[in-house]
Design a protein around this nucleic acid. Sequence first.
DNA 1: CGACGATTTGACTACAGTCAATGCTTGTGG
DNA 2: CCACAAGCATTGACTGTAGTCAAATCGTCG
Lengths: 279, 279
Amino acid sequence: MQPFETLDPGRPAVVAGMAREASAGPAHGSDAILRRFARFVTLTGADRRRLLHLAGTATPQAARRTVLTEARPCDCLHMLVAGWAMETRTLPTGERQVLRIRLPGEVFGAECLAYGQALQSVQMLTGGLIARIPRNAVADLRVRHPQVVTGLALMGLYERAVLQEWIIGLGRRPAWPRIAHLLLEIDERCRLSGLARPAGTPFPLKQRDLADCTGLTLTTVNRVLADMRRRRLIGLRAQALAIPGRDDLARACGFQPRYLRPDLAVAPGPAPKHIASVG
Amino acid sequence: MQPFETLDPGRPAVVAGMAREASAGPAHGSDAILRRFARFVTLTGADRRRLLHLAGTATPQAARRTVLTEARPCDCLHMLVAGWAMETRTLPTGERQVLRIRLPGEVFGAECLAYGQALQSVQMLTGGLIARIPRNAVADLRVRHPQVVTGLALMGLYERAVLQEWIIGLGRRPAWPRIAHLLLEIDERCRLSGLARPAGTPFPLKQRDLADCTGLTLTTVNRVLADMRRRRLIGLRAQALAIPGRDDLARACGFQPRYLRPDLAVAPGPAPKHIASVG
DNA sequence: CGACGATTTGACTACAGTCAATGCTTGTGG
DNA sequence: CCACAAGCATTGACTGTAGTCAAATCGTCG
């Protein structure tokens, strides 16, 4: 099987902590930011230039580095210009819960502006680049680049929808479909972000990370993944995920990518039959 | 023990589907809306008048009525002018997951504006009043009442923080502390909203609802509540909740109301000791 | 009183957790 | 180039928390 060099899961910029191609081709670097905003709003040239300038201030981050620590004072918005990250909370018992996975081009830490501190930690999953946007620069965006702020608001709604889907999974889905749903969600997000490659999508999460996403134990995650592989539903190796049995998998866990597609046209018609139609 | 008439959990306006005092005293009706916004932003007189006008268009809703159905096309923002509600999702298996509890004065359904449809159902927990704000009225707010829109954005961050806390609970807290945390959260939100009374806070949720909030079964919820009562940590009767053992309960489940207080000053200093301080 | 919804309780089951050992990769330094 | 260590993945045996199934009781409201 291919060594998946082309599937390099977002370590475009950093090797051993050093930036290599931070401003290389158009498919790398700050480009991810613009492509992400473009999915939510239409930006002016000035908006784009401003975002690119902000992204240009990004600094390299090594894989697994903690870039933001919960409960620490913080007054900035953050842009993940390149690389993957995850937001986590650690309980007094030492247990960890992952709250979301961050893909290249995403903005995070908005809650710092409201709370004056980070509510959760952010850890890099791969090497990457992060730009900090101080409060006054955000205020400036509000005045001079309202479309950017509108984009941020819509991204917030989008993220809330994803959080809700995680709640459904944690609350009501057994281990197998819970993991299946997460894999499909990450895969779909990669596709929508243009990160997917013919052989599969990048997948820098360890089994330990999957366990902390799903509230399961490492042992259970390992057994479920082994089962999915045995059934030839997924292929997971060398930091890359392939889902040959996508339809079967989606059916088995009730995955409906609607919530990942705010741009999708509304399908008119009545609610699904299993829902009591009182309204 | 008192019959808790004064604890009436938010059915201020509706009895048997009929509005009684929709525009009664200042402590009722649309007032809740203004008080909630005031916690996030400073409104001008014009802002307040506009909100009151919108709230004035509210229609009465009976307890347990479904006021918004998931997957149905929808183009409005909604204001819960009076009464309690909950947002839920129903799985194909018929299982239900509650996503959040809505208190009087809250705004819901913002995702409809981005997705063109409701992502989850909303059901009344008590009788109440609901106002619909059509898309063009929201656009008008953006232009003429930017502070109102800022308030909505901050409320969105707040709600995301609450969602995250639910994820922690569902993912990593055993049944007992999970329920304890939820009770404390609802209680604290009531206090911050001025709904609490000396004898306790209103609590219109059934054990079935608690089970669907926490991803547990009705049986488990019942046993945990019985245990908490036996230990004299809580008193739960006649639609009202009292928590005499608040401190013990909070310690037992690691409840920290920080996330419910965006207005709170940041406590300077290092992160809690159980968190690896890498950043 | 009778009916319905809500709560309570008991007996049994099972899914996922815990504990522990082993195997496999990857990266580092001799 | 190989030895070694560290992190990650895999597997087995056993345990326990919460789920399932079922029935009884309580309480409120016609």
